[in-house]
Simulated assay, not measured.
Amino acid sequence: MGPGRARGLLTALELLRADAARDARLDFGLLQRWQRHVLGTEEPPPLRSRPAFAKGGRERYGIGPGIRARLDSCLAESACDAARPLPLTARAARAYLDVCFFHPFDDGNARAAFLTLVFVLAREGIALDGVSLLRRIAFRADEPRDPLVLASYIDTHLTETRRRAAAPA
């Protein structure tokens, strides 16, 4: 990653943490705000308007009426809900994969998904001290075990972060 991209990602992370601290609602508008810095653009990037392809064309992400509302609805489910209690790791994994598979931007969707995952954790007061497993993986839309693998990776990072925090210096 070049210095410009790294600065953009760090700026997006700062915004993300501030948004999490104020318990912002996770939606496409919030992703756009972060993505503007990730991509280094003057304006927030728009929702893509054409089908997108990934993994050498093996995966296709469609476009249709109501896609933004559907994405916003899915992202809203990342919030803690007493009526529907899901573990934090499941909510973080789901939000990450929603961004991956809605593929809302023409560019930078993997980074947007990563920021989404970090936001879901930060909103619950959690900051990971490492993300190596989370930054070097790819998931397939048609692989039913991938969400479980991602939730397991998130749990591994949470466990390691807590272990290191509890260890004597």
Results as ranks from 00 to 15, higher is better:
P3K: 10
R5L: 13
R7W: 02
R7S: 08
L9I: 15
A12W: 00
E14R: 09
E14A: 15
L15N: 08
A18E: 14
A20T: 02
R25Q: 12
L26D: 02
Q32Y: 00
R33T: 06
R33D: 09
W34I: 01
H37V: 04
P44A: 12
P44Y: 06
P45I: 06
P45Q: 08
S49W: 07
S49I: 13
S49R: 13
P51F: 05
A54W: 07
A54P: 03
K55N: 13
G57V: 11
R60I: 11
P65I: 11
R68T: 04
A69D: 14
S73P: 00
L75I: 14
A76I: 08
E77C: 12
A79S: 09
A79R: 12
A79I: 04
A82H: 06
R84E: 11
P87K: 11
P87I: 07
T89E: 13
R91H: 07
A92R: 03
R94C: 04
A95C: 11
Y96V: 02
L97F: 05
V99Q: 09
P104D: 05
G108R: 06
A113V: 07
F119V: 03
D129C: 13
V131S: 15
L133K: 08
L133R: 15
R136Q: 14
A138C: 08
F139D: 00
R140E: 12
R140I: 02
D142T: 14
D142N: 08
R145L: 13
R145H: 09
D146P: 00
D146G: 05
L148V: 12
L148W: 06
I154S: 05
T156S: 15
T156H: 12
H157T: 03
H157Y: 02
L158H: 01
E160P: 00
R163Q: 05
R163L: 07
A165M: 03
